[in-house]
């Protein structure tokens, strides 16, 4: 089956920078793809590029985004509006500010139905109540007339999800949907997303920097660093045998993955330096922060290779790293 969404060699350019370079990935119907990476790695820009809602200064310099056989980068504004909210929907990071404060949540949900399905306001309101019930908001008949400030953060994110799934989109982009939420709420919201994905047969692009989220909800993981894909794998493979030095660093910096982890067992490691050190470098963007770096790393950007089935990695020395015992790699 042809993938629902296929991104090929996507390059996003600002006047002075290229925050996303040569990014390729694909996602099939009903699948959850997680894109992980630290702040500034180009995750959110990629999401906005899929919606064709990039900031005005940015443009897509190269590559294509094929969705259901159509290249989104070549669609006109009118055709793109027709897709937005109807076939491709998006949930944003900040539920506190992503809803209009002076409109009731019911009208905000109804709006998307009125635009795309040409429903009357009465029918749209009925559907809005159903959708609130679908995202497990209690007493939806009463809540439909509430304003966003009357809801908690988790409730607002549920409303955002209701808006996003209102027209049963084929692709849902969730840009750090739980980052601003309480930990106890996070799992509820992600479970809800996952249930809806199954019920509506949606493909989900889940953007996150939380590896715990990836382990539990993703079918496929893309690790991004400085605008490039550095590794792609199935979640189990990624956690059991990370190949790229950056992925290893990320895992080592994450407490949830070791059993019974406690701060007395030893400090969490960190990846030295910051993503800014990749600016203006030739060769591998991770080289300044990499403990495996060699002289040859500065010559050219490493190409993606296929070390095993369903895996991609952009580091030529992965085989030799693999020889290093796993535990030693984790304490890098």
């Amino acid at each position: 089956m042809a993938p629902l969404l296929q991104v090929d060699n996507l390059t996003i350019r600002f006047p002075r920078a290229e925050p996303v370079r040569d990014l390729s990935f694909e996602i099939s119907q009903g699948e959850t793809l997680a894109i992980v990476g630290e702040s500034g790695s180009g995750k959110s820009l990629t999401a906005l590029a899929l919606m064709q809602l990039l900031p005005r200064a940015a443009r897509i310099a190269n590559g294509s985004i094929s969705f259901g056989g159509r290249d989104l980068t070549k669609l006109g504004a009118r055709e793109m509006r027709h897709l937005r909210g109807r076939e491709i929907a998006m949930i944003f990071q900040e539920p506190m500010t992503s809803l209009n404060p002076v409109m009731t949540i019911g009208r905000q949900i109804a709006e998307v139905l009125q635009v795309h399905e040409k429903l009357s306001s009465r029918a749209a309101r009925e559907r809005a109540i159903e959708l609130l019930r679908l995202v497990r908001i209690p007493a939806p008949e009463k809540r439909v007339d509430d304003y966003p400030h009357q809801l908690s953060g988790g409730m607002r994110q549920r409303v955002m999800i209701a808006i996003a799934v209102a027209c049963k989109p084929k692709l849902l982009i969730a840009d750090e949907p739980t980052t601003a939420l309480d930990v106890t709420i996070q799992a509820q919201v992600l479970d809800l997303l996952d249930t809806l994905r199954r019920e509506l047969q949606m493909a989900v692009v889940l953007i996150t920097h939380d590896l715990g989220v990836v382990a539990q909800w993703a079918d496929k993981v893309v690790v991004m660093y400085a605008g490039r894909k550095v590794e792609q794998a199935l979640p189990d493979d990624l956690f059991n045998d990370p190949l790229h030095p950056y992925t290893r660093g990320l895992l080592a910096a994450s407490p949830r993955l070791k059993h019974d982890f406690h701060y007395r067992d030893g400090a969490l490691t960190e990846i030295p330096g910051s993503i800014v050190s990749a600016v203006g470098e030739t060769g591998c963007p991770f080289r300044p922060r990499c403990n495996q770096a060699r002289a040859s790393c500065s010559h050219h950007v490493p190409q993606l290779t296929v070390p095993a089935e369903d895996r991609l990695v952009a580091c030529p020395f992965t085989t030799s790293i693999k020889a290093v015992p796993h535990a030693a790699a984790l304490s890098l």
Binding site: L53, R81, R84, G85, E111, I163
Partner: peptide, 8 residues
Amino acid sequence: RTAYAKGL
């Protein structure tokens, strides 16, 4: 941005 994402 949310409003634009709805396709308005």
